[in-house]
Amino acid sequence: MAVLEVQNLTKDYGPVKALKGVSFSVPAGTVFGILGPNGSGKTTLLGIVMDILKATSGEYTLFGQVPTERQRKQIGTLLETPNFYHYLSAVENLRIAAAIKERGVEDIDQILEVVGLSHRKNSNFSTYSLGMKQRLAIGSALLGNPDVLVFDEPTNGLDPVGIAEIRELIKRLSQEGKTIIMASHLLDEVEKVCTHVAILKQGNLITSGHVNDILVAENVVEVASDDLDALAAALQGYDGFSRMEREQHSIKIFLPSGVPDLGRLNAYCFQKGITLSHLQLRKKSLESKFFELTS
């Protein structure tokens, strides 16, 4: 069953079309990344699903049902910014969120432990740093241990340690069988945790599906030897690569995705009388793939 199904969703802000007929579905148990540059409509899309924005046209279902507040109570959501009462403490804020979600308050202490805010749990929200606010928002989404989580830019404002922690948290939640919908413009975040991905660009859905099908990265192998010209000439006879790029101190050859046989390449060169001084496999960066898809 699809946790979220979006059909032909359109949203206009006056003359600006933020979403132009977007459709996709999020299967249960996946970590679903919504990827796109700034202003591509990620937050608008999630805002509509959470009923804080009104779609111009189109429909969506949550858990296969026409969405009401009842479905939202079963989803832990962090949308765009941490939204809390500035004059209340972390605990007081989480109590309010728990009351709205109709969940117990028993797990508040444990959640604050998970997101690393226990030592400041009675300080007012207004005294928190950006990263701490973000942590509290993630904690609030975890209240009541929901089966579905929606994270919009979850690592915003976090330091490198915080980013790693949140990644681990998302992986762990995913292993527990939870469905996670995550919007991000950070590719490597998506690459590291997502199983499925939808790519948005200027309100259009470019593609969606399994991450391995969409973000297939070509293999790039970097080779070098004392005599680059001879190496280049020899490589002309090597089969199975799509193209070759000459750089200042090395040569890049592009191999199709899959596990490349570097041993065969090495043996081939040796046969041709060339000793490689450098042989390194590089995945084609996801970034260039992303630019390719969105430009």
């Binding site: 009923d51 507040e69 109570k73 939204n83 809390f84 009462y85 709205i100 109709e102 609030s140």
Partner: peptide, 13 residues
């Protein structure tokens, strides 16, 4: 505080 949004997100109609 944008808590009007958060209240709706958390499950108020």
């Amino acid at each position: 505080f944008r808590t009007n949004r958060q209240n709706i997100i958390d499950g108020l109609s």
